[in-house]
Design a protein around this nucleic acid. Structure first.
Lengths: 93, 93
DNA sequence: TTATTATATTTGTATATTACGATTTTTGAA
DNA sequence: TTCAAAAATCGTAATATACAAATATAATAA
Protein backbone atom coordinates (compact mmCIF):
# COMPACT_ATOMS: atom_id res chain seq x y z
CA UNK A 1 0.00 0.00 0.00
CA UNK A 2 1.31 3.38 -1.10
CA UNK A 3 0.58 6.14 1.39
CA UNK A 4 1.12 9.11 -0.89
CA UNK A 5 -1.00 8.08 -3.87
CA UNK A 6 -2.61 11.52 -3.91
CA UNK A 7 0.79 13.14 -4.28
CA UNK A 8 1.78 10.68 -7.00
CA UNK A 9 -1.43 11.46 -8.86
CA UNK A 10 -0.67 15.16 -8.70
CA UNK A 11 2.83 14.69 -10.02
CA UNK A 12 1.58 12.38 -12.77
CA UNK A 13 -1.01 14.99 -13.70
CA UNK A 14 1.68 17.65 -13.96
CA UNK A 15 3.73 15.42 -16.26
CA UNK A 16 0.68 14.64 -18.35
CA UNK A 17 0.05 18.30 -19.04
CA UNK A 18 3.52 18.82 -20.50
CA UNK A 19 3.60 15.37 -22.17
CA UNK A 20 2.32 16.63 -25.50
CA UNK A 21 4.53 17.90 -28.34
CA UNK A 22 2.71 21.22 -28.75
CA UNK A 23 2.49 21.95 -25.03
CA UNK A 24 6.08 20.86 -24.49
CA UNK A 25 7.13 23.15 -27.32
CA UNK A 26 5.24 26.07 -25.79
CA UNK A 27 6.72 25.39 -22.35
CA UNK A 28 10.24 25.07 -23.71
CA UNK A 29 9.81 28.27 -25.72
CA UNK A 30 8.68 30.19 -22.65
CA UNK A 31 11.45 28.67 -20.58
CA UNK A 32 14.05 29.77 -23.11
CA UNK A 33 12.70 33.18 -24.04
CA UNK A 34 10.97 34.27 -20.84
CA UNK A 35 7.68 35.18 -22.49
CA UNK A 36 5.68 35.07 -25.71
CA UNK A 37 2.29 36.14 -26.99
CA UNK A 38 -0.24 33.80 -28.53
CA UNK A 39 -0.03 35.09 -32.11
CA UNK A 40 3.67 34.47 -32.18
CA UNK A 41 3.23 30.93 -30.84
CA UNK A 42 0.62 30.27 -33.51
CA UNK A 43 2.81 31.19 -36.40
CA UNK A 44 5.72 29.15 -34.95
CA UNK A 45 3.61 26.09 -34.31
CA UNK A 46 1.57 26.09 -37.50
CA UNK A 47 -1.59 24.77 -35.91
CA UNK A 48 -5.00 26.49 -35.83
CA UNK A 49 -5.64 29.31 -33.38
CA UNK A 50 -8.24 27.35 -31.43
CA UNK A 51 -5.85 24.45 -31.01
CA UNK A 52 -3.09 26.65 -29.61
CA UNK A 53 -5.56 28.31 -27.31
CA UNK A 54 -6.81 24.97 -26.00
CA UNK A 55 -3.28 23.85 -25.21
CA UNK A 56 -2.61 27.16 -23.48
CA UNK A 57 -5.78 26.61 -21.50
CA UNK A 58 -4.53 23.29 -20.21
CA UNK A 59 -1.17 24.73 -19.23
CA UNK A 60 -2.90 27.68 -17.58
CA UNK A 61 -5.38 25.54 -15.69
CA UNK A 62 -2.54 23.40 -14.35
CA UNK A 63 -0.82 26.53 -13.04
CA UNK A 64 2.16 25.98 -15.33
CA UNK A 65 1.84 29.27 -17.19
CA UNK A 66 0.15 32.57 -16.62
CA UNK A 67 -0.88 35.26 -19.04
CA UNK A 68 -0.88 39.01 -18.85
CA UNK A 69 -2.94 41.08 -21.22
CA UNK A 70 -1.40 44.00 -23.07
CA UNK A 71 -4.13 45.51 -25.18
CA UNK A 72 -5.32 42.90 -27.64
CA UNK A 73 -2.48 40.53 -26.95
CA UNK A 74 -1.83 38.20 -24.06
CA UNK A 75 1.73 37.46 -23.10
CA UNK A 76 2.39 34.19 -21.34
CA UNK A 77 5.22 33.14 -19.10
CA UNK A 78 6.20 29.99 -17.21
CA UNK A 79 5.45 30.06 -13.52
CA UNK A 80 6.08 26.50 -12.29
CA UNK A 81 9.51 25.73 -10.90
CA UNK A 82 9.11 21.96 -11.14
CA UNK A 83 8.38 22.31 -14.84
CA UNK A 84 11.44 24.50 -15.31
CA UNK A 85 13.53 21.81 -13.62
CA UNK A 86 12.06 19.09 -15.84
CA UNK A 87 12.67 21.17 -18.95
CA UNK A 88 16.27 21.58 -17.98
CA UNK A 89 16.55 17.78 -17.59
CA UNK A 90 15.24 17.31 -21.11
CA UNK A 91 16.72 20.25 -22.97
CA UNK A 92 19.94 21.37 -21.29
CA UNK A 93 22.85 20.92 -23.71
CA UNK B 1 8.38 26.57 -37.84
CA UNK B 2 10.02 24.30 -35.27
CA UNK B 3 12.98 22.39 -36.68
CA UNK B 4 13.23 19.72 -34.00
CA UNK B 5 9.61 18.58 -33.82
CA UNK B 6 10.76 14.95 -34.02
CA UNK B 7 12.90 15.45 -30.94
CA UNK B 8 10.08 17.23 -29.10
CA UNK B 9 7.75 14.36 -29.95
CA UNK B 10 10.24 11.87 -28.53
CA UNK B 11 10.62 13.82 -25.30
CA UNK B 12 6.84 14.24 -25.01
CA UNK B 13 6.45 10.50 -25.53
CA UNK B 14 8.94 9.79 -22.75
CA UNK B 15 7.01 12.07 -20.40
CA UNK B 16 3.74 10.49 -21.39
CA UNK B 17 4.98 7.04 -20.41
CA UNK B 18 5.79 8.14 -16.86
CA UNK B 19 2.76 10.47 -16.63
CA UNK B 20 0.51 7.88 -14.99
CA UNK B 21 0.24 7.32 -11.25
CA UNK B 22 0.93 3.58 -11.38
CA UNK B 23 3.85 3.87 -13.77
CA UNK B 24 5.25 6.84 -11.89
CA UNK B 25 4.97 4.84 -8.67
CA UNK B 26 6.81 1.91 -10.24
CA UNK B 27 9.52 4.18 -11.63
CA UNK B 28 9.97 5.99 -8.32
CA UNK B 29 10.12 2.69 -6.47
CA UNK B 30 12.83 1.35 -8.75
CA UNK B 31 14.69 4.63 -8.55
CA UNK B 32 14.67 4.51 -4.76
CA UNK B 33 15.28 0.82 -4.20
CA UNK B 34 17.35 -0.14 -7.23
CA UNK B 35 15.21 -3.11 -8.24
CA UNK B 36 11.99 -4.96 -7.56
CA UNK B 37 10.15 -8.01 -8.82
CA UNK B 38 6.65 -7.95 -10.24
CA UNK B 39 4.91 -9.81 -7.40
CA UNK B 40 6.16 -7.30 -4.91
CA UNK B 41 4.99 -4.39 -7.05
CA UNK B 42 1.58 -5.99 -7.34
CA UNK B 43 1.00 -6.32 -3.64
CA UNK B 44 2.23 -2.72 -3.06
CA UNK B 45 0.09 -1.28 -5.79
CA UNK B 46 -3.05 -3.28 -5.15
CA UNK B 47 -4.07 -3.46 -8.79
CA UNK B 48 -4.69 -6.63 -10.84
CA UNK B 49 -1.76 -8.57 -12.20
CA UNK B 50 -2.62 -7.88 -15.83
CA UNK B 51 -2.77 -4.17 -15.14
CA UNK B 52 0.66 -4.09 -13.51
CA UNK B 53 2.06 -6.16 -16.34
CA UNK B 54 0.63 -3.83 -18.96
CA UNK B 55 2.18 -0.81 -17.27
CA UNK B 56 5.50 -2.63 -17.03
CA UNK B 57 5.19 -3.39 -20.73
CA UNK B 58 4.86 0.28 -21.57
CA UNK B 59 7.83 1.22 -19.43
CA UNK B 60 9.85 -1.62 -20.94
CA UNK B 61 8.92 -0.77 -24.52
CA UNK B 62 9.96 2.84 -23.95
CA UNK B 63 13.36 1.66 -22.73
CA UNK B 64 12.76 3.11 -19.27
CA UNK B 65 13.10 -0.17 -17.41
CA UNK B 66 14.56 -3.58 -18.09
CA UNK B 67 13.85 -6.93 -16.53
CA UNK B 68 16.03 -9.86 -15.64
CA UNK B 69 14.56 -13.24 -15.00
CA UNK B 70 15.55 -15.23 -11.92
CA UNK B 71 13.65 -18.46 -12.08
CA UNK B 72 9.97 -17.69 -12.01
CA UNK B 73 10.41 -14.09 -11.07
CA UNK B 74 11.47 -11.12 -13.13
CA UNK B 75 13.34 -8.32 -11.44
CA UNK B 76 13.10 -4.89 -13.00
CA UNK B 77 15.39 -1.92 -12.75
CA UNK B 78 15.44 1.62 -14.12
CA UNK B 79 17.75 2.16 -17.05
CA UNK B 80 16.96 5.65 -18.36
CA UNK B 81 19.06 8.51 -17.05
CA UNK B 82 16.64 11.23 -18.18
CA UNK B 83 13.89 9.56 -16.18
CA UNK B 84 16.14 9.36 -13.12
CA UNK B 85 16.78 13.09 -13.46
CA UNK B 86 13.06 13.85 -13.78
CA UNK B 87 12.28 11.69 -10.75
CA UNK B 88 14.81 13.59 -8.72
CA UNK B 89 13.13 16.86 -9.79
CA UNK B 90 9.79 15.58 -8.56
CA UNK B 91 10.75 13.56 -5.51
CA UNK B 92 13.97 14.87 -4.01
CA UNK B 93 13.36 16.11 -0.48
C1' DT C 1 4.73 -36.18 -17.81
C1' DT C 2 1.46 -32.95 -14.78
C1' DA C 3 0.74 -29.16 -11.69
C1' DT C 4 1.85 -24.75 -10.01
C1' DT C 5 3.65 -20.17 -9.78
C1' DA C 6 5.09 -15.85 -11.99
C1' DT C 7 4.62 -13.01 -15.70
C1' DA C 8 3.04 -11.58 -20.39
C1' DT C 9 -0.34 -11.03 -24.01
C1' DT C 10 -4.85 -10.71 -26.03
C1' DT C 11 -9.41 -9.02 -26.15
C1' DG C 12 -13.49 -6.22 -25.33
C1' DT C 13 -15.09 -2.06 -23.67
C1' DA C 14 -15.48 2.21 -21.19
C1' DT C 15 -13.32 6.52 -20.70
C1' DA C 16 -10.25 10.27 -21.87
C1' DT C 17 -7.75 13.03 -25.08
C1' DT C 18 -7.08 15.45 -29.24
C1' DA C 19 -8.00 18.24 -33.31
C1' DC C 20 -10.34 21.69 -35.50
C1' DG C 21 -14.12 24.52 -37.41
C1' DA C 22 -17.60 27.64 -35.77
C1' DT C 23 -18.86 30.84 -32.50
C1' DT C 24 -18.15 34.07 -28.78
C1' DT C 25 -15.70 37.35 -25.88
C1' DT C 26 -12.53 41.05 -25.11
C1' DT C 27 -10.16 44.99 -26.35
C1' DG C 28 -8.94 49.13 -28.87
C1' DA C 29 -9.41 52.04 -32.85
C1' DA C 30 -12.09 54.63 -36.26
C1' DT D 1 -21.55 53.16 -31.81
C1' DT D 2 -19.35 49.93 -35.45
C1' DC D 3 -15.45 47.32 -36.89
C1' DA D 4 -11.41 44.41 -36.76
C1' DA D 5 -7.88 41.83 -34.29
C1' DA D 6 -6.58 38.64 -30.59
C1' DA D 7 -7.79 35.09 -27.82
C1' DA D 8 -11.11 31.87 -25.56
C1' DT D 9 -14.84 28.61 -25.68
C1' DC D 10 -18.06 25.25 -27.68
C1' DG D 11 -19.50 21.07 -30.30
C1' DT D 12 -18.16 16.96 -32.03
C1' DA D 13 -15.73 13.40 -34.61
C1' DA D 14 -11.54 10.76 -34.52
C1' DT D 15 -8.13 8.62 -31.89
C1' DA D 16 -5.79 6.92 -27.86
C1' DT D 17 -5.68 5.02 -23.29
C1' DA D 18 -6.88 2.35 -19.17
C1' DC D 19 -8.72 -1.54 -17.27
C1' DA D 20 -9.75 -6.29 -16.12
C1' DA D 21 -11.00 -10.89 -17.50
C1' DA D 22 -9.39 -14.60 -20.08
C1' DT D 23 -5.75 -16.89 -22.15
C1' DA D 24 -0.91 -17.88 -23.13
C1' DT D 25 3.97 -18.59 -22.00
C1' DA D 26 7.98 -19.73 -19.17
C1' DA D 27 10.17 -21.92 -15.44
C1' DT D 28 10.24 -25.13 -11.77
C1' DA D 29 8.88 -28.89 -8.75
C1' DA D 30 6.59 -33.20 -7.81
Amino acid sequence: MIEDMKFLEEQAELLKVIAHPVRLCIARGLWRSGSCNVSHMQCCLEVPQSTVSQHLGKLRQAGIIEGERNGLEITYRLKDERVKAILSCLFSQ
